[in-house]
Amino acid sequence: MGAVETLVSRNEEFARSTFDGNLRMKPKLATIVIGCVDARVDPALVLGAAQGEIMAIRNVGGRVTPRTLEELIMLRAVAGTVNDDFDSEWELVVMQHTQCGLTRIHDRTELLATYFDVSENELGAVPVTDPYAAVARDVSLLRADGRLGSARVSGLVYDVATGKVATVASG
Rank of each mutant, 00 (worst) to 15 (best):
L69N: 04
A56C: 12
L111S: 11
S140I: 02
Y115F: 15
V93H: 07
L112A: 08
V78E: 06
I73N: 13
D42A: 05
L123K: 08
T162E: 03
A151F: 01
L29E: 12
V60R: 04
G101F: 13
T129H: 12
R58Y: 05
A134I: 08
L75R: 07
M95G: 00
V64K: 00
Q51V: 02
N121P: 02
A49I: 00
S88W: 01
E12Y: 05
K28G: 07
R152S: 14
F86L: 08
G163V: 04
V41G: 01
A169C: 05
L156E: 00
F116I: 01
V153T: 06
Y158K: 02
P27H: 03
E5H: 06
M1W: 09
S140W: 07
A161I: 00
T68F: 03
G48W: 09
E71H: 11
T65W: 09
G124H: 12
T167R: 12
I73T: 01
R76E: 09
I34D: 02
L29S: 09
F19Q: 13
R10G: 15
K164L: 14
C100H: 01
M95Q: 06
Y132F: 09
L47G: 06
L47S: 11
E12V: 12
T162Q: 02
G35C: 11
A15Y: 06
G21F: 11
V4H: 06
L45H: 07
A125I: 07
M95C: 08
H106G: 15
K26T: 13
H97R: 12
M1C: 09
V128K: 00
G2C: 14
A113Q: 11
L29F: 11
A166Q: 10
D107K: 15
R152G: 04
R58K: 15
V118E: 12
D145Q: 10
G80Y: 08
N83Q: 14
T98I: 00
L111K: 14
G2D: 14
V60M: 12
V4R: 12
L141K: 06
R108Y: 13
S119Q: 08
V37D: 09
M74H: 11
G163C: 07
V60F: 08
S154L: 07
G80K: 13
Q96N: 13
E110I: 03
L69A: 02
N22D: 15
G80W: 10
E13D: 11
L45E: 14
N121E: 15
V128N: 01
D42R: 00
L45D: 09
D85L: 03
P127A: 02
G146E: 11
G124S: 13
A136K: 11
V126D: 07
R143G: 00
G35Q: 05
E91C: 13
V94E: 05
E89R: 13
I54K: 05
L102P: 00
T114F: 07
D42C: 10
A30N: 14
P127G: 07
N11H: 10
D84Y: 14
L92T: 03
G171H: 01
Q96Y: 03
V165A: 04
H97V: 03
M25D: 02
D130V: 09
T18W: 03
D107T: 15
F19Y: 15
T103L: 03
L72Q: 04
N121R: 12
